[in-house]
Amino acid sequence: MSTESAMLAQQFDDAAQQREASALGMWTFLATEALFFGVLFAGYTVCRVRFPAAFAAGSRHTDMLLGTIETAVLLTSSCAVALALRDVQLGGRRVAAWLLVLTAALGLSFLVMHGFEYYSEYREGLIPGIRYTQQGPLAGPMQLFFCLYYFITGFHSLHVGIGVILLLVMARRTWRARFSAQYYTPLELSALYWHLVDIVWIFVYPLIYLVGRAG
């Protein structure tokens, strides 16, 4: 089927205009995402400057091994989605669909690992407001660290979750040959989104897991 003309919405003159508009819309959306996370990073910075010791201590409570594996998983998944897009651009279909499924699976495993992290933190009593059993001098301000930790990783995981669903939909549409070497805008935009999720994590990982272990 001629996907190109079928996908042209009436308000656009031609496919190029539609593609440009969609891409610009996605980039604008990504700019808002940067600000969503920007607030949290700003809050993190302010609190950490006030309580460097408590933040370092809080950071040491996180699971660096899992965090590192999660980072590797996300980076791999980003590579997979890029390969999938490349395959579609070259006219491929099956490989691309499987690569997308792989990306989604990696995203899902990221979420599962995070679930385990949260659970072990719950058992350790590290969740302020729900179960917080830390004692000692740093216990108070360390809660600030954990509030931000859960909020940032939770909000990021929400993005991962949305991304997984999006990628599965894209995998299905790729499998059904909705895309071609001429028309693949939705897939490209989904990949962009997934890269953003990945990039945000690249900031989260050192701030949460690595920072207190340096000194």
Partner: peptide, 8 residues
Amino acid sequence: IMLPRKQV
């Protein structure tokens, strides 16, 4: 007194 960890 209130936040002794802030500055030791």
